[in-house]
Design a protein around this nucleic acid. Sequence first.
DNA 1: TGTACATCAGTGAACGCGCGTTCACTGATGTAC
DNA 2: TGTACATCAGTGAACGCGCGTTCACTGATGTAC
Lengths: 205, 205
Amino acid sequence: MLTPKRKGSDYHHGDLKSAAVLAARNLIESGGQQALGIRRVAEKLGVTAPALYRHFTSLDELLYEVSCDVRAELGELMVTRRSEVHPSRDKRKYEIDKFRAIGDAYVDYAQKFPKLFEIAFIQHGEEKVGEYSELAWNILNESVENFVTLGITPKSKRATAPLVAWSAVHGLATLVANQSIASSDVPFFRESVMAGIEDSLLKKN
Amino acid sequence: MLTPKRKGSDYHHGDLKSAAVLAARNLIESGGQQALGIRRVAEKLGVTAPALYRHFTSLDELLYEVSCDVRAELGELMVTRRSEVHPSRDKRKYEIDKFRAIGDAYVDYAQKFPKLFEIAFIQHGEEKVGEYSELAWNILNESVENFVTLGITPKSKRATAPLVAWSAVHGLATLVANQSIASSDVPFFRESVMAGIEDSLLKKN
DNA sequence: TGTACATCAGTGAACGCGCGTTCACTGATGTAC
DNA sequence: TGTACATCAGTGAACGCGCGTTCACTGATGTAC
């Protein structure tokens, strides 16, 4: 049990809100979106259901907070992985390696937390990719920017490259989260898709 | 109201089963997966709920049938669109045009029926892409096969090309169904993604 | 062709369930004098 | 520092609801003679 339970369910002026988001996260990860419920979260925390209404106006809001959390975590994983890439004297190689790292991180996350990945992109309102997933989107754009600066990618592709790359990686990640791809095949296809994206980024036109 | 209602709810030895799948389809398309329910389908058809248990063992089975239906329809749209492509004397161009057509069809379907698209790929069992979506998958493979035969795509990419292409198109379609991309931007990004895929298919390595 | 009968797709009532949410409350926490 | 009081995060009971599913039934359909 990962959720902290205090004696006598004493969350008074404590951290019920963040504990609830964490519990919700765990419920979703193990049973999918439909496993999430106000009462179930309350039970997990040893608290009565109405207590949660001090922190969330509805079940939907709780779900929304979890999805924000997940997107943030995904972005953080991308940053971390990118920072672990060994610098190379070849600036282009280094840049490409970092690009690989962020793409791999995205797919790995989907494989590790498939159910969370699935709820990460449910829509609340009218936000577009770059808005609701700001961190990840910015990281990708940085990469593309650098590709253009270093002459890896032609300027003409500057505008479309990010979404093309995102589509390919996101599609693969979706299929992985889905179990449409056997987990043993994932590394191979991840490699192929990343190579495909690079092919298209490198190509002059 | 698209669902045929007979006088006195007289489906006796009629087509309750296919009518139910259709009604389920409509419910999902207008309200998402959670709008689907045995009782709601029954109500839409002017029939009592238990009647449906003559044709489906559970709600899950009904959902499954709808998802099969949707995948089949998606495949059919791809076939249709491909057949509408004007032949060209240039065999390569013709093949590429057909490839475009099937990719465009995929994305268009997601845009036209976003909720249906979302449930099309939920998993029942352990099937992989090529299995549960046989028609669409075969069409794509045919295209790639022809690309290789005509020398458009190097043999070395034969194995990975289909899934790379599928990922990119599927990712875009997902984002479109999601409303992560404004509908007015769809044609532009669809064009970009398809061009990106072709870049990667064309590239020697 | 007409009757007797078997089949089976429907009906209507009922089941138990778990859900999100509300309400009036209580008792712990933090603050002002 | 100690007391009185306001705040507010919890409790416990209850709400109404719609759900999937079951059961014994009925009456329409199709078949055999």
